[in-house]
Amino acid sequence: MKGSVLDFDEGNRSGIISGEDGNRYTLDISEWKGNQLPKAGAKVDFAVTGDKAEGVYPDSAASNTSTSSKKIAAAVLAFFLGAFGAHKFYLGYTKEGVIMLLVFLFGFILLGIPSFIIGIIAFIEFIIYIVKPDDEFEETYVQGHRPWF
């Protein structure tokens, strides 16, 4: 059966799954077959015995591969064209992209110091994008609205 994790308590190492049939099932960590601990909202595939979920696997068909590619593309843009705000435009933060672009371009009037600072900001964002896990990147920069580091 397919469903999604409603809640998972790492302390008790148990949680609740909502099945596609509308019922709720208890999840024990001993039945979890994924590499990482389950998180609320994760899509799963599982078998049912009474009110317990057994053999619970993360639903690979529901995994979002575009998130990873969006993360990688944003990181590459931040590294190579970050001073121009290209990664901001790519992630949909137009206002912030324009700010970075204008500060970089007009920064040369002030001996290049603002341009250098914008370059450092872009490099810091590149590092943050690379280090951040895919699901956290998705929540923070794609679904959420956090334009700056």
Rank of each mutant, 00 (worst) to 15 (best):
M1E: 09
M1W: 06
K2N: 14
K2Y: 15
G3D: 09
L6Q: 10
D7L: 08
D9P: 10
D9A: 15
D9Q: 08
E10H: 13
E10V: 13
G11W: 07
N12I: 09
N12W: 00
N12K: 15
R13V: 00
G15Y: 05
I16C: 07
G19K: 15
D21R: 11
G22R: 13
N23M: 13
N23P: 02
N23C: 13
Y25K: 03
T26S: 15
T26E: 10
D28M: 04
I29L: 12
S30M: 14
S30G: 08
K33M: 14
G34F: 12
L37E: 09
K39T: 12
K39N: 13
A40W: 08
G41F: 04
G41H: 03
K43T: 01
K43Q: 15
K43Y: 02
V44E: 01
V44C: 01
F46Y: 10
A47S: 11
T49N: 03
E54S: 06
E54G: 02
G55N: 13
V56H: 04
Y57M: 11
P58R: 10
S60T: 14
S60D: 15
A61C: 09
A61Y: 14
A61P: 03
T65P: 07
S66M: 10
T67Q: 08
K70H: 14
K71V: 07
K71M: 02
K71D: 03
K71A: 02
I72A: 06
A74R: 14
A74L: 15
F79P: 01
F80C: 10
F80L: 15
G82H: 06
A83Y: 04
F84M: 13
G85Y: 05
A86C: 05
H87A: 03
H87S: 02
K88L: 06
K88M: 11
Y90H: 08
G92V: 11
T94K: 09
K95V: 13
K95T: 12
E96G: 04
E96V: 13
G97R: 06
M100S: 14
V103E: 00
V103Q: 02
V103G: 01
V103A: 03
F104V: 11
F104S: 07
L105C: 13
I109Y: 09
L110Y: 14
I113V: 15
I113P: 15
P114T: 02
P114N: 02
F116P: 09
I118V: 15
G119C: 04
G119M: 08
I120H: 03
I120E: 02
I121R: 00
I121H: 05
A122G: 12
A122Y: 10
F123V: 00
I124E: 02
F126V: 01
Y129P: 05
Y129K: 02
K132T: 12
D134Y: 06
D134I: 11
D134G: 10
F137S: 04
F137A: 07
E138Q: 12
E139A: 08
T140E: 07
P147K: 00
W148I: 09
F149Q: 08
